[in-house]
């Protein structure tokens, strides 16, 4: 606020025409270190309670902003991003380590080295050391993909 505006507010204050909210505004403005001597008298008249109330309202308003402000906002964003990263890592770990339920799906190694002309016997004998129990459905699938 410019000095001229403060001067006008002070005049209104002396005329008894300011609201409590405007007086809080004046109290905050008069906290500057380099104010004229006359303004110091006004600051004294407004008192600590007005200033304290003004600061209280300012802090509460700042806290009620979404994610606060400045450093506080940075901290909150950091914690949100950290939480999201942790959830993703746990999800990835579980995805890689838990067994899948779908037994109808043919594992990739059953079909990985199939080539034209491979028979069911080639496939079975080549891979039976990896999986002893192949279902009829899985053999059918392999044959179908090999045609």
């Amino acid at each position: 606020m410019k000095d001229k505006d403060i001067e006008q507010l002070i005049n209104k204050y002396l005329e008894g025409e300011t609201s409590p909210e405007k007086e809080q505004e004046i109290a905050l403005e008069l906290q500057r270190p380099d104010i004229p001597q006359e303004w110091k008298a006004i600051r004294l008249m407004l008192g600590e309670l007005t200033l304290g109330e003004a600061e209280y309202d300012t802090i509460v308003a700042k806290k009620s902003l979404p994610f606060g402000g400045g450093l506080e906002r940075g901290r909150r964003w950091f914690s949100i991003i950290s939480s999201m990263a942790a959830v993703l890592l746990v999800g990835l770990f579980l995805y890689q380590h838990l067994p899948t339920e779908n037994t109808n799906e043919v594992p990739h190694y059953y079909t990985s080295n199939l080539s034209a002309g491979s028979t069911l016997r080639n496939v079975y004998t080549g891979h039976r050391h990896q999986e002893k129990h192949l279902s009829y459905t899985q053999f059918k699938t392999m044959l179908y993909e090999n045609k």
């Binding site: 204050y13 002396l14 005329e15 008894g16 025409e17 001597q37 006359e38 110091k40 008298a41 006004i42 004294l44 008249m45």
Partner: peptide, 21 residues
């Protein structure tokens, strides 16, 4: 009320200015 508050403030202000010189 406005008139009395104004009178009170001006009195206090004048006195404080005088003492702060």
């Amino acid at each position: 009320i406005t008139a009395m508050v104004s009178a009170a403030r001006k009195k206090v202000f004048t006195e404080l200015k005088r003492r702060m010189k």
